[in-house]
């Protein structure tokens, strides 16, 4: 599958890996794929969200959740994470997103897997998914974004 990725899509996967490391996560999740996609002005424009906004929204979700168990991290500044060590493996949700984007490419009889295919697959994530939680927090209108991604 990876050889069919467009250059843009391949770059996004690299950024997603960096996002996973940057947050200190042990798995590359669907939320990291979303953050990775936002490194690219194409998907960022379609989503109508900036990378900084999405990172801030993810941090806000963490802060609220930690506050609910009595831990106040207000004002905690992110530290630079080491770039060495194991590459985080894909979460099962992230693997599903990979399969979904392949299906979207096949539906369009496209030889290449594009960033629009990735976005559409991310938009399919349902409740209890980290990317879906992030999209909700950001107030993204999924139907509208889907329409824009399909016509891109």
């Amino acid at each position: 599958m990876f050889e069919r990725f467009s250059d843009d899509t391949r770059k996004i996967l690299g950024f997603a890996m960096e996002e996973a490391r940057y947050s200190g996560d042990k798995r590359l999740g669907t939320d990291h794929l979303l953050l990775g996609a936002l490194h690219d002005p194409g998907p960022a424009g379609i989503l109508g969200v900036t990378l900084d906004q999405a990172r801030a929204a993810a941090a806000a979700l963490d802060r609220t959740a930690l506050a609910s168990i009595g831990i106040d991290t207000q004002g905690f500044e992110r530290v630079t994470m080491p770039s060495r060590g194991k590459k985080p493996p894909f979460s099962s949700g992230a693997r599903s997103v990979m399969e979904g984007m392949l299906r979207y490419a096949m539906d369009r009889k496209s030889r290449q897997i594009t960033t629009a295919n990735l976005l559409l697959s991310l938009l399919d994530r349902e409740e209890h998914d980290p990317a879906a939680a992030l999209l909700n927090k950001l107030g993204v209108d999924r139907a509208e974004v889907r329409r824009r991604a399909l016509s891109s």
Partner: peptide, 24 residues
């Protein structure tokens, strides 16, 4: 009594926080 959506997110956030504090 936490909603699991919040509670599980808190566990993930604790892991991330631990990694950050460890690195520093």
């Amino acid at each position: 009594s936490l909603d699991p959506a919040i509670g599980l997110r808190a566990v993930g956030a604790l892991h991330r926080l631990a990694e950050q504090v460890e690195a520093a």
